[in-house]
Amino acid sequence: MMGLLTRSAPRTVYKTEAGEVVYGMMAEFATPAEISHAAEKVRDAGHSRWDVYAPFPIHGIDEAMGFKHTPIALACALIGLTGAGLGFLLQWWVTGQAYPMVVQGKPFTAWESFIPITFELGILFTAFTALGGMLAFNKLPMFYHPLFKKERFLRVSDDRMIICIEAADPKFDPTKTRELLESAGATSIELVEE
């Protein structure tokens, strides 16, 4: 998620024995409790580019993964207020300045009649920001992901949970990462090719 905001430093490129570039290392877990503890260990080891894949939402996983608050809330507030302001300005200019017209004997720039549209445009801009921000920070739509090639990954839609640490993570090291995941209780560990 943070990849969108920070430029990744030049990194070591790891290759498998067959010569393929390594995307990351995946470890399989059987229960939500196990993967939560494992996620805490990976978090505490200081990894930044990794994710947890599970067939259902796991309570408390956001805390175990050390999620920080997203800037989407702030963006929504600012863009929402901008939308509301623009909506008000548009009505004020159209009905008061550009083409004044008497409606029901009300003043040209009666703020009361502007409120519903102002409110709606505020909501519209906020909703678009929330949706667009969610898609952008999640890098969606995504048509290819290296994990899709893995046979074991299929069970993530059924009864297994997986942690995948990317090779682009500054703390990634083929042997140390494997040791970390083993000590976290992974039932199987594999390298993932790009």
Partner: peptide, 12 residues
């Protein structure tokens, strides 16, 4: 509060 005011203001 605005809803009450708005409708009364509009219909007059």
């Amino acid at each position: 509060a605005f809803g009450q005011y708005f409708l009364i203001w509009y219909s007059n």
